[in-house]
Amino acid sequence: MGGYHRGEIAVQERAGFARQAGHARGAIGNTVPDVAVAFLAEQPHVVVGGTDERGRVWATQLTGEPGFLTVPGPHTLNIGVLPLPEDPLAAVLTGSRAGRGRVPIGMIGIEPATRRRMRMNGRAVRDGDGLRVELDQVLSNCPKYIQKREHHPAPAAAADTSAPVTRTAADSTELSPGQQRTLRTADTFFIATASDRGDADASHRGGNPGFVQVLSPRLLRWPDYAGNAMFLTLGNLELNPAAGLFVPGWETGTSLHLTGFARTVWDEERVARHPGAQRLVEFEITAVREIAAASPLRWSAPAFSRFNPPTAG
């Protein structure tokens, strides 16, 4: 995974960013820099993407007290927690064992308060009550489109660990009216993809509320803004349309998980209707899972990124 795969190269060339992508490739390594070791140690959460036992791609979030992310060696990340039993990736991650093959996962450590983020892709195996990930790719991303937020623990009543974590609705194949409202007002979500070889990636998407369009209970659309020219997400979609979205409930701790298939829209006339868009992405939903009280973290109201383009009228 040291270079770009053919899907990434195809998208870079079609978008006209092949030269920029060539320069950016030097930022992709497979070791965690010392400054990033300290950054990860301060984080209370990490977003993870992967493929479940049925071949569906999901994105999710793991949380813990700062220090639950450690780097015992430059090529290894330890995650000191396991997913909740209700988590869509729980079965594959909690069931992964040494000697039975490692599970490809993509990860993004993100600190909204400072608009810093770091992506890591590798292969995970269960290690006691946590995960050990051997890293294949490590790279930092720019702070564009990250909304600034400060985190704090949930109120004592909401953080009562004796209360079971429950789904707020049974898994479904389409969005409820409430979930549609959540997406229409979202300013942030995370997307997981995988290459045709199964190598996973997790990435951040942000914009002003309204940048995610709900076209129907089973179809979403969002603009693809200017980024780092690597096209790791769109490159995976070029080879494998399976994708998963995670929408955090910043104020409630609720996790909204979607899985389905995504495609890139290149039609210039359609793209031009969306301010700031260089392409569009359409996402067809095949399954929805919402988990109440999935996270003990609560976050302040956002300070929107100055890079956010206006939303389409």
Rank of each mutant, 00 (worst) to 15 (best):
F304E: 02
A242R: 12
A243I: 05
A156T: 11
E13W: 10
E65K: 15
R25A: 10
V265I: 14
R132D: 00
T188Y: 10
R102N: 01
G99W: 09
V214H: 12
R6F: 03
K144Q: 06
E111Y: 07
G49H: 04
F17C: 15
V35A: 14
G198K: 04
T166M: 12
L183N: 01
A98G: 12
P85C: 01
N208I: 09
R270A: 11
L245R: 10
I146F: 03
A294W: 06
L232Y: 09
P83L: 00
N78A: 07
S96I: 02
P112C: 05
G235Y: 14
V11C: 08
D171N: 15
N208A: 15
L256K: 12
A124L: 07
G73K: 06
T259M: 08
S216A: 15
F307P: 10
V11H: 08
T76S: 07
D127S: 08
R100A: 08
F307H: 14
A41L: 00
G253E: 05
R54F: 07
G106I: 04
S255C: 05
R97S: 01
A90F: 13
E53T: 15
P275D: 00
Y225F: 13
N240W: 02
A287Q: 14
I105F: 04
A242Q: 05
W250N: 06
V46G: 04
F307R: 09
F68C: 01
W222I: 08
D201L: 07
E284Y: 06
A312G: 08
V47A: 05
A38W: 09
I79S: 00
V11E: 04
L239N: 05
E251Y: 11
G101V: 04
R25P: 06
N236T: 05
M1P: 13
G64R: 01
H23D: 08
A157N: 13
P296H: 11
G3V: 07
R56A: 09
I285E: 01
T252K: 15
R100N: 06
L93T: 02
L220S: 03
N141L: 11
Y4V: 06
A163R: 15
P223F: 07
L131T: 04
H23T: 13
Q213G: 06
N78G: 05
F261C: 09
P44R: 00
R100D: 03
H152K: 14
P83G: 00
G122L: 00
H152C: 12
N141F: 12
G313N: 08
Q180Y: 08
R184L: 07
L89F: 14
Q43A: 02
M118K: 15
R221K: 04
V271W: 10
N228R: 08
W58S: 03
D224G: 10
R306V: 11
A169G: 12
W266C: 07
T252A: 10
G235P: 12
R126G: 01
G260D: 05
R149N: 04
T51I: 10
D196G: 13
G198N: 00
A287W: 11
N78C: 06
R97N: 02
Q179E: 10
P209E: 00
M107S: 03
P155M: 08
A194N: 04
E269L: 15
G2M: 15
A194E: 01
G253P: 14
T188S: 13
V133E: 00
P164Y: 03
T252V: 14
P143K: 09
G29I: 14
P241I: 09
S195A: 04
G178E: 10
G22V: 12
V57D: 00
D129K: 15
V265M: 02
D224K: 13
